[in-house]
């Protein structure tokens, strides 16, 4: 589904990604771990199409197509979703108008008619239940005045509405208490299907108790230095990253 080959990316004149190779197949859950500043968030931003980052070398193929030449919205239409580490607040744009614009744009791209009000509300109610979100959130400005946990739940709600093929969740667990973590993880697991895939970016093994990965990659200084099964997370939790770096 996703193939990253020798990906180099910079911001300004600072090179952050220094040759990433990664392959994700449908039905898989990949976790990317690594110490602060290793390039985890840069990788997710590059995949989502953030313009500040310049890809200097390498390629990214998504379902056989060159992902890097698509705009952020085209990547979304193609089926990529980025769950933000720090979801953006948009005062004045209500959650419901925001997600309605997004869903209807996706439908338009697929040649489907826009959902009518009743159909949309039904879908929205159903998907809000995935992350135990109260309906009062729909009329509020996007993420405005939301707590850390509410923002992350809103990300997963948006993901549930857009049904991406590949979801990249950037530190979705940061700032969550145990209950919120469980709710968010349950939401993600509900959406798991044989034809979609998830990349979970995280610091901690904690999230991986709930969202169990098939593969774990350790990113360090812009390169993947270790790839292993889910048991690697437990070892990292015990021993930290130093032993991996020294290897």
């Amino acid at each position: 589904m996703l193939t990253i080959t020798n990906l180099h990316a910079s911001i300004g004149d600072k090179e952050i990604l220094k040759g990433i190779n990664l392959s994700v197949n449908a039905g898989e859950v990949h976790a990317i771990m690594g110490p602060n500043g290793s390039g985890k968030s840069t990788l997710s931003a590059v995949l989502a199409g953030r313009e500040n980052y310049v890809v200097t070398e390498g390629e990214v193929k998504f379902e056989g197509n060159n992902l890097l030449e698509l705009s952020p919205e085209e990547r979304s239409w193609a089926g990529i979703f980025l769950g933000f580490q720090y979801p953006i607040e948009i005062p004045g744009v209500s959650n419901v108008n925001f997600i309605k614009a997004a869903v209807n744009e996706h439908r338009k791209q697929k040649g489907l008619p826009a959902l009518n009000g009743a159909e949309f509300l039904k879908l929205m109610r159903e998907r809000m239940a995935y992350v135990e979100m109260d309906s009062s959130f729909s009329s509020r400005g996007v993420n405005v005045g939301f707590s850390g946990g509410e923002k992350k739940r809103n990300e997963i709600f948006q993901m549930a509405m857009l049904e991406p093929k590949l979801a990249i969740l950037d530190e979705t667990d940061s700032g969550l208490d145990v209950d919120a973590l469980r709710i968010v993880a349950t939401g993600v697991n509900k959406m798991k299907r044989p034809d979609n895939a998830t990349i979970v970016i995280t610091h901690y093994q904690r999230l991986l108790d709930y969202i169990v990965p098939d593969v774990i990659h350790v990113l360090y200084k812009g390169r993947i230095i270790k790839t292993a099964g889910k048991e690697l997370a437990i070892e990292i939790e015990k021993r930290g990253y130093d032993w991996l770096i020294n290897e």
């Binding site: 989502a48 952020p72 979304s76 953006i88 948009i90």
Partner: peptide
Amino acid sequence: FYMRTRGI
């Protein structure tokens, strides 16, 4: 950017 990643 946030809105565009959602397909808007």
